[in-house]
């Protein structure tokens, strides 16, 4: 039972995006539609699980001085392979994801889990940890993509849900939702919601802001 904690822990309690604020870049870029978000989530989860497994397997033989390079090499190779597979089997989606699959390499989430967990734990728990973090990331990405696609384009998975005025319906799409800043807004609201429900996640302020003694008037 204890090892299963690695799986469900990161989904809400220790979510990589809402608690650790990792992997934000891709969360902004690919969440304009549910389809791209879903493929991105599957690609990231796949890379995370495989990278955790490989790195955990050879963890006892990775020299400390070059461990980050070794981890990045393994992650980058897995990402390229996944990218090639997507280009071969899901060509439409690969065109819409463009460079973001390649950018999984630079996703701090993958390197973060490799360095923090897979380097020190056996293969089984490492893979569960990778899967759990991948699912936690996916959950947030899909929620953000749901909000952005629904309000930004009136569709879900490309299917019309709110008929837009372009198609003769009544809904005026909120173009802001299709721009990157809206992902920040949705993410911020999510972080707020999660931390209101679980106050334990609220971080201590580094220091209190003093009242300004010089300040005059009300």
């Amino acid at each position: 039972m204890k090892t299963l904690r690695h799986l469900y822990g990161p989904i809400i309690d220790n979510n990589p995006i809402t608690l650790q604020i990792l992997g934000i870049c891709s969360a902004l870029a690919v969440t304009t539609s549910m389809t791209t978000a879903l493929v991105m989530c599957m690609a990231l989860t796949g890379v995370l699980v495989m990278a955790s497994a490989v790195i955990s397997t050879i963890r006892r033989h990775i020299p400390g001085s070059i461990r980050l390079i070794i981890q990045i090499t393994i992650i980058a190779s897995l990402v390229i392979v996944i990218d090639q597979v997507i280009q071969a089997y899901a060509f439409d989606i690969s065109q819409r994801l463009s460079i973001f699959v390649g950018l999984i390499v630079t996703n701090c989430l993958v390197l973060g889990r490799a360095e923090a967990f897979a380097m020190h734990n056996p293969v089984g728990p490492s893979m569960l940890d990778g899967l759990g973090n991948g699912l936690g990331y996916s959950l947030i990405l899909l929620i953000v993509a749901f909000v952005r696609e629904l309000f930004g384009a009136g569709t879900l998975f490309g299917r019309m849900v709110l008929p837009t005025i372009y198609e003769g319906g009544w809904y005026t799409p909120l173009n802001l939702m299709l721009l990157a800043p809206s992902a920040f807004i949705v993410l911020g609201l999510l972080v707020w919601a999660v931390r209101s429900l679980r106050p334990a996640q609220i971080e201590q302020a580094d220091y209190e802001i003093d009242a300004d003694k010089e300040r005059q008037g009300p």
């Binding site: 050879i58 020299p63 070794i70 393994i74 980058a76 190779s77 390229i80 090639q84 280009q87």
Partner: peptide, 20 residues
């Protein structure tokens, strides 16, 4: 270790690229 990891990874990447 650096050499082995690099070799294995490059074989993996090139075979994926060529096969697909």
């Amino acid at each position: 270790v650096a050499f082995i990891v690099a070799t294995v990874c490059s074989v993996l990447v090139s075979s994926a690229a060529v096969l697909l």
